[in-house]
Design a binder for these strands. Structure first.
Lengths: 210, 210
DNA sequence: GTCTATAGTAGGATAGAC
DNA sequence: GTCTATCCTACTATAGAC
């Protein structure tokens, strides 16, 4: 069936990029992973770049959907960190972030990959952004948080960490531990009593003006 | 001269990876960038992977050296953030972090690239780690900072951000702005008077035990 | 040490049989 | 829609002239 073959090729592409990296991905390696003929890449998608773009779109949409409810359930920054950690562990299996990292790397040298990659990443950023906005609202640290920029920073950090994972797993997990630990600060800021909280707000206001 | 040719090839490799990405880097493209014959890649380095490893070593050692004094001059977390921003701007010209990002991406599919890449990244991590350790010492937030893990996290974030830059420059600079703004928090924590500072320490201690 | 030439392989893409 | 066969290009790597 045609729809089935398309799907096999998309899954084969995701698999191949994860295992071989963008530099080791070709119509032939993808087709082999998919268990179909190499010519079908061009019949169904026109070019390898177009197949990769499609794989990137599909895989990301699925992964973001998969996490939507859990993102929605987050009510504190600490919980968001915990979810991030879970997501990182999950990604070892699913590998969408690794795919995006490889697509980003590939986009550096091939503009045909750039726009689909950027769109896919925006799906993640938007999701993170909406959680951040909700969770940070009312917190004393709200005025120092630029939600939209921070969402980009978090996404970038995730991408970097996923790349590290292959080369230095220990460093990568130490990094997550460190962020977790640092998250205690956010919790402390959120749990201050009303007096201390007002004092913190005042300090932040004056520091912001400096 | 042989030494000169080696150097041209290394520079050509750095240049090619930055411009074409790891997937678009070959003995031919590198040699063209270096203005020398393609066969010299193999004469001098044995293989393309070996040339890339060497380029990665050399470029990183030079860049880390270049920043050593400035890292040493940093005395606060806020200053470190500012230096990070300067470094990011600098990297648009020099591109060592982009090179490392591409090497990381390549290492995912070719173990021959992994160890040199991991070594190069450790040069950066070590440098960041020693600054962090110095700067955080005595601060009330010291107990929640895992210096070594945080240094890895910062490096990973940098790598991710450098990859974003090519695909979404606006998002990348918004990310840095956001971190900068968040840095105000660190400044506030560091500038507390002795009473508030002791209170913060106590809060952190109890939160750490939870 | 650097070049030309070339062997051998892998990849992108298409034509045409089924 | 899928396959085989094939063209052409680009790549890694080596041999050998200079």
């Amino acid at each position: 069936m045609a729809e089935d073959t398309r799907r096999r090729l998309i899954d084969g592409a995701i698999d191949t990029v994860r295992r071989n990296g963008i530099a080791g991905t070709s119509a032939r390696t993808v087709a082999a992973a998919a268990g179909v003929n190499q010519a079908l890449v061009f019949y169904h998608f026109g070019s390898v770049a177009d197949l990769l773009n499609e794989a990137c779109r599909v895989s990301t949409a699925e992964d973001v959907d998969r996490y939507r409810e859990r993102f929605a359930a987050v009510t504190s920054l600490r919980e968001l960190l915990a979810l991030g950690r879970e997501l990182h562990a999950d990604q070892r299996e699913r590998g969408n972030v690794t795919l995006l990292a490889q697509m980003l790397a590939g986009a550096q040298g091939d503009e045909r990959l750039a726009s689909a990659t950027s769109e896919a990443i925006k799906l993640w950023v938007r999701e993170i952004e909406s959680v951040l906005r909700r969770v940070v609202a009312g917190s004393p640290i709200e005025p120092v948080v630029d939600v939209s920029g921070l969402a980009s920073a978090v996404s970038a950090a995730f991408v970097g960490m996923e790349l590290f994972e292959a080369v230095d797993p220990a460093g990568s997990s130490a990094a997550l531990d460190a962020l977790d630990r640092l998250g205690i600060l956010l919790e402390v800021a959120d749990d201050l009593g009303p007096v201390a909280s007002t004092a913190l707000r005042r300090r932040i206001r004056s520091a912001t003006r400096e």
